[in-house]
Simulated scan of single mutants.
Amino acid sequence: MNGVDLFLLGRALMKIGEQALPQPSGGAARYAGSTRTVLVVASDIAEHPDSAVGEIAARTGLPQSQVSTAVARLKEAGSVQTAPDPADRRRVLVRQAAETSERVAEVRASDIREALAAALGSEDAERLREVNAALELLADALAPAMPSRS
């Protein structure tokens, strides 16, 4: 495997993940681009608690407006908490919520079987088990600190 193959695999896996995520409540439409943005921001917040929106934007390379929107969505879902920066009351600091909200639990519990079967073009149970086991191996090796794995 080379860097291009790895990148394309990552993109394919992101698409499968997006398809596996449960629809937002209230009949809201699925927005793949913003889902990626929200997940990138959530990941950064997990790694860097008590960060200002501008700091998150600088680390992720996302425009500050997209980071602000993602933080608002995460806050609405109960995934993050915000508080004024004691050193500069104009800034807002963001951190993961102390408790797991119902929506966060729902998203973390989402099942990938249907999305994986669609991506593979097969519902062969043995093939799905093999691919899922390979994905579990990769996740254990490369992303052991993911919230859903702890």
Rank of each mutant, 00 (worst) to 15 (best):
M1H: 13
D5V: 08
E47T: 09
S122Q: 05
A72R: 15
P86G: 06
A57D: 04
R59Q: 01
R149C: 02
A105Y: 00
S150L: 10
L93I: 04
S34N: 09
G3Y: 08
S68E: 11
P63W: 00
R90K: 10
L138C: 11
V71T: 03
A32Y: 08
P86F: 08
T60V: 04
D5A: 10
Q66H: 13
S51F: 01
M14F: 06
D111M: 08
G26D: 00
A115M: 03
R149V: 03
S122E: 04
E106H: 06
L138G: 12
A141W: 01
L9H: 09
K15P: 00
A72Q: 13
I45R: 13
A87E: 14
E99Y: 00
A98M: 02
A134I: 10
I45G: 02
L120A: 12
Q19H: 03
A118M: 07
P84V: 07
A133L: 09
E136P: 00
D111F: 10
A12H: 10
S79M: 14
L8F: 07
P147E: 05
N2F: 06
R91N: 15
R91I: 00
A145Q: 15
R30Y: 01
L6N: 07
G27H: 05
V38S: 09
D5R: 07
A134S: 13
E18G: 14
V71I: 11
R113N: 15
A29S: 12
Q64A: 14
R73H: 09
L62E: 05
R36C: 04
S148Q: 12
V53K: 02
N2V: 01
R89W: 01
D50K: 08
R127L: 15
D124E: 12
R108A: 06
I56E: 05
V53H: 12
T69W: 13
A20R: 00
L39G: 10
R36M: 13
A134V: 07
G78V: 08
R11M: 13
V104Q: 10
R149M: 11
P147Q: 05
V71A: 03
D5N: 09
M1F: 09
E106I: 00
